[in-house]
Amino acid sequence: MVDLDYPFSETAVRALKAGDVVRISGTIHTGRDMLHKYFADGGEFHVDFKDGALFHCGPVVVKTTAGWRVVAAGPTTSIRENAYEPGFIRATGVRLIIGKGGMDSATLAAMQECGCVYIQAVGGAAAVAAAAVKRVSGVDFLEEFGPAEACWHFEVDGLKGIVAMDTHGKSLFTDVAKYSRRQMDILTQPMSSKGKKK
């Protein structure tokens, strides 16, 4: 288990390897479909992602007398941001992208170049992720994008994840995709229904 604390240094991030289990603490920001498109379209933007973390997440947040309370905060599918992410990484200097499902080779290349890793949080595990959020320090674009798409600023303590794409060009998802492609070919060959046992 590797502990990562905000601000995330390039050295710490480049030392990570695909498969490492990490615990993230400090400030992280949520951002998904609308934020990525807005950023790519050149929208005005003042959130500082330098040495920071971007969480692909649309949380359930309720307003209480004591402020915002996060009740559910699992990751959303990251592939939808493939078109935007390389540009986002290069422009902002973000160090951690937290999401689910992984991203494409262009994003992996931008990660290698800039020193950024992709961290897989467990999809659907929203209660565990919410429990790691200690405080909501603010929110941007709440009116414009709605609560699920807004850019929330969380203070987290020990948010768990697995490094799935590292700065050395390794992606766990590419390995799985290749293996399953081979198995698929074996399983769907004419006259055969036997796959190779893993």
């Binding site: 997440c57 649309g58 949380p59 359930v60 009740v71 559910a72 905060a73 699992g74 959303t76 999809g123 659907g124 595990a125 929203a126 209660a127 919410a130």
Partner: peptide, 8 residues
């Protein structure tokens, strides 16, 4: 008593 997944 909170949502299992944030995407309800």
């Amino acid at each position: 008593g909170t949502p299992l997944c944030q995407d309800t």
